[in-house]
């Protein structure tokens, strides 16, 4: 579904990605794990179009999208849940969700998706009129995911969904991610919490200082001594 080959991304003169290649198959959950500054978020932001690569190419279902602006990628079905949630704080929960469906015109489908989001996150239905900025961190993360789902994504890019959340809520969120995949959405997941990420993912890539150093099925990575030592705490 998504094919990235030899991607080079720079922040000014600093090289963030060194020839990163990876692929995501339809219906998979693929996770990128690695330390701070390894280039996980950079990869994700390049796929969603918020950053432009200097070299390399990104193919989505065979189509070259390397130079496509972000709003056209959303129309294709590549939707990002940005790091740190980034809900629109002064808008209500309902308005935030409406904005997720901004690029769509099919009213019946939007209504259907709204019900789907509310069945995944009942708390959002309860807080529909409330300003998004007054939600708790976990609820804001749910809103950010719900908002992305409103765009009816085919590939969902999730950037650190567990950031700053209590362990119990992290568990909930990951449960929902697995649920979303069951509904037929492909997920590319960036996560610092490697254990959680690998437990729901099919495959994983390990990034170190902008290079892919290891890849394979999630179970194998979990059993890998190096990965255990570096990211799984022993």
């Amino acid at each position: 579904m998504l094919e990235i080959s030899r991607l080079d991304v720079y922040y000014g003169v600093i090289r963030a990605l060194h020839s990163v290649s990876l692929h995501v198959g339809k219906g998979e959950i693929v996770t990128l794990i690695g330390a701070n500054g390894a280039g996980k978020s950079t990869t994700l932001r390049t796929v969603s179009g918020l950053l432009r690569p200097l070299a390399g190419e990104i193919l989505f279902e065979g189509e070259d999208i390397t130079d496509m602006p972000p709003h056209r990628r959303v129309a294709l079905g590549i939707v990002q849940v940005p790091e740190g949630r980034r809900v629109f704080p002064q808008m209500s929960v309902g308005e935030n969700l409406d904005l997720g469906a901004y690029a769509r015109k099919d009213k019946a489908g939007i209504k259907q998706d709204l019900e789907r989001v509310f069945s995944l996150f009942p708390i959002l239905a309860e807080r529909r009129k409330q300003a998004a900025g007054t939600l708790s961190g976990g609820q804001q993360q749910m809103l950010a995911i719900g908002r992305a789902l409103m765009a009816r994504p085919r590939l969902l890019l999730m950037d650190e969904p567990s950031l700053g959340l209590a362990p119990l809520i992290v568990k909930d969120i990951f449960h929902v991610i697995a649920e979303i995949r069951k509904q037929g959405v492909t997920v590319l997941l960036v996560e610092q919490n490697a254990h959680m990420a690998l437990s729901i993912a099919d495959r994983g890539y390990v990034l170190e200082t902008g290079r892919v150093t290891l890849s394979g099925p999630a179970k194998e990575l979990m059993a890998n001594e190096e990965v255990k030592k570096a990211y799984l705490g022993g």
């Binding site: 179009g49 129309a75 940005p82 997720g100």
Partner: peptide, 15 residues
């Protein structure tokens, strides 16, 4: 208004 509230999120939403 979404652009005012959070430009990056607006970008990510396909605006």
């Amino acid at each position: 208004i979404a652009v005012r509230e959070d430009e990056i999120a607006a970008d990510a939403m396909g605006i």
